[in-house]
Design a protein around this nucleic acid. Structure first.
Length: 408
RNA sequence: GCACGGGUGGCAGAGUGGACAAUUGCACCAGACUGUAAAUCUGGCGGCCUAGCGCCUACGGGGGUUCGAAUCCCUCUCCGUGCACCA
């Protein structure tokens, strides 16, 4: 009995260590949080969510995975949906003044968000709150809040200062934003708040607000921003370098395979549960040439797909990938497209089958040698193709396969 | 309200009367190679066809000047900055 208790104890220590170190950038204040985690008090762990973008990707999942670790330690996760601020519209995107989104949109966005977030955290143990619940305050309360910070302080923020220097605008709303979301921490009595490294200032403001409202300051913990598939910028939908949580297993697998080799260890650390020791070993082995980065990446892809689609689908996605790209075999499932002619030009065939957007594009693909019909490369854009009774197999590039049949 | 600056292809950002379907970078697509949809290299990246140094559409909207406009003028619209007591 005693030993099992001990084992549980050491397992907890391990989890704590993981919370504080794996995929963690800043911890403030470290020793305080460490003690709190070792204690028995159930901590309230806050994460603020922007309700404008309902699509989650594995980059946004990084912070959710961190939350999950807190949940595993028995703490309470509080998701705060920033519907209030979203309705005002965050003007920080200077160029295109972001339009305020409606309540209805927010509700549907959040439904989407939660169903996706549920793949990472345990929603049953999560408290979900909308900050319009308390932020729609009167002027009196608002003014009390504005006493917390000074214009001097806000204007000294590195990002604001830089923008002012460049002659760009900094809206008051932006300055208020951190106050308002800091007030969330007061209202929900947060012990800990987590967020991406880009949120550090906001999180710090939460501490300041809490202190001014006579409350104990929350600890804060930041996680890195995951680099996107381009390996340059952070993963984001607007850069089109993201891997969606809802992506089909096959696409998810392929997209992971398309990341730069250098990103492999980072992705392992932030996006999978593979033990850090193993990751380090893989890193060493890749450097020494003992491990083919491709194989490490295949494992990475499998681990990631596994988290969101389960083991069976992960295995079949892997199979499919190896088949199609390494062994150059045909994919298992090939979609069928019906056409109403028995014979048509290759250009028309590409367009009709949806493998090319326009005749010009089709021609280009053909001239560049990217088109095969029944495994025969077609280079002449004027070639006519007969649609055989059993159909013809059209391959465009390495990834598009379509079976074209005649529609009676 | 006044002054100034700006609105260019999915994004960033050149171009300020002809050589502009518009430099370049990113993203994207194809090919070669490979270790993979990595890296690298090559080509492409508005549409149409009779494939021509062809035609159509396109540099915020509309109108104009000109043989010719993304480029000049007018007007509208949108964005940004500054000013708005002294001025």
């Amino acid at each position: 009995m005693k030993s099992s208790k001990k084992r549980a104890q050491s397992k907890k220590e391990l989890l704590i260590k993981q919370v504080l170190s794996r995929g963690t950038v800043d911890v403030i204040e470290r020793t305080h949080l460490e003690h709190a985690l070792s204690g028995n008090k159930k901590l309230r762990v806050k994460l603020g969510i922007d309700p404008t973008s309902p699509d989650l990707h594995i980059g946004t999942a990084v912070v959710l995975r961190k939350l999950k670790q807190f949940q595993d330690l028995g703490h309470k996760v509080v998701l705060i949906i920033g519907d209030f601020t979203a309705q005002i519209g965050d003007p920080s995107d200077q160029k295109t003044e972001r339009r305020a989104i409606s309540k209805k949109e927010i509700v549907s966005n959040m439904k989407n968000y939660l169903s996706q977030a549920g793949k990472v955290i345990d929603l049953g143990k999560t408290e979900v709150r909308y900050n319009s619940e308390w932020l729609n305050v009167g002027a009196e309360e608002l003014l009390a809040l504005t006493k917390v910070a000074t214009i001097n302080q806000v204007s000294e923020r590195a990002d604001f200062r830089a923008r002012i220097k460049r002659g760009e605008r900094v809206s008051l709303m932006e300055a208020f934003y951190s106050l308002l979301q800091g007030y969330d921490s007061v209202k929900i009595k947060a012990d800990v708040e987590i967020g991406g490294t880009d949120q550090l200032l906001n999180l710090l403001m939460g501490r300041q607000v809490q202190q001014n409202f006579g409350m104990k300051k929350q600890d804060i913990l930041t996680v890195p921003l995951l680099e996107g598939t381009d390996g340059v910028r952070k993963m984001s939908k607007s850069y089109n370098n993201y891997i969606g949580i809802n992506a089909a297993p096959k696409d998810m697998f392929g997209k992971v395979m398309s990341i730069k080799d250098a990103l492999i260890p980072v992705y392992f650390t932030l996006c999978t549960d593979v033990p850090e020791k193993e990751i380090l070993k893989m890193e060493r082995d890749m450097k020494s040439g003992r491990l083919n980065p491709r194989d490490a990446k295949i494992r990475l892809a499998r681990e990631i797909v596994l988290l969101y689609h389960g083991e069976r689908k992960a295995a079949s996605a892997e199979n499919e990938f190896v088949n199609v790209f390494t062994k150059k075999k045909l994919p298992k499932k090939i979609s069928i497209k019906l056409v109403d002619k028995r014979k048509l030009g290759i250009v028309g065939l590409l367009v009709a089958s949806g493998t090319a957007k326009s005749n010009s594009e089709a021609r280009r693909l053909i001239e560049q040698g990217g088109v095969r019909v029944d495994d025969m490369r077609i280079i002449d854009p004027k070639k006519d193709i007969k649609i055989l009774p059993q159909g013809v197999l059209l391959q465009v590039g390495r990834r598009k396969f379509v079976k074209v049949k005649y529609k009676k």
